[in-house]
Amino acid sequence: MSAVQTTSPPPDDTRRRSPMAEVVFSLLRSKTFLVGFAIVLFWVACALFGEHFAPYDPLADDIINALAPPSREHWFGTDQIGRDVFSRVIVGSRDILTVAPLATLLATVAGTALGLLTGYFRGIVDDVVSRILEAFMAIPVVIVALLAIVALGTSKTTVIVVIGLSFAPIIARTVRSAVLAERELDYVAAAQLRHESAVHTMFVEILPNVIPPILVETTVRLGYAIFAVATLSFMGFGIQPPSPDWGLSISSNYGMIGGGFWWTVLFDALAIASLVIGVNLAADGVHGALND
């Protein structure tokens, strides 16, 4: 089945590795990937086990100690109803790290299916669908989200569907161009001569060979999905109080920023920044490893 053109290993490399092991090996050598992956892993650990090592309950208020600046008791200070900012930042990774990956997954599945169909069949279906997808891509996610949320109401599911469907055309475009190159190869012609069904040829023959570009596009999209989820929760769409979500915390605290209460927003902002940069570094590493 495999028609991956494996380049022969360089002569000084005596051990032969499978293509998969090759990719993992070059990922582990990529500093960019390792740094990004470490950052992401840290936040995933916080999302999973955060409440066990957070010093306070992220939802417990303490009005007497409201808006206390950073101190030994509260490393990152407290917010306007006295909740510990440090604990909230740690546990705040949970919602965004649930919603963004699910949206990316939806985008990848829908985009891959669309890309395979348009790339494999070409013709008028491809022309029409590609045109519509391209036109759709020009509409900013925030606008689509605004409309969807007005029409369907605010919920995490709406956010997942909006981001998933907004990103699907972008993945479809990548998959389509990879499929266009693959479908000219002999193994596809062989499958067609065996009278394999179109579904079989697309999903069993071609799909495994276009996995690398899909992986790269998915990791890149994950970065954008985190961007979008954070932005939407800052706008008050999607993740709802009392979740300690970072974007949501910033939106409920930035009104007091003029009063000098910088600790109520700075750490959340830095948390979002570190997660987005971490995912992008990891994506860059994956891109490098798969395009060597």
Partner: peptide, 23 residues
Amino acid sequence: GLSVTVLPEFVTGIILILIFGVW
């Protein structure tokens, strides 16, 4: 350039407000 491009506008906005507006 690449690192500031990937950050959400409200995040860079908040940090810039803190630096140039508050501090």
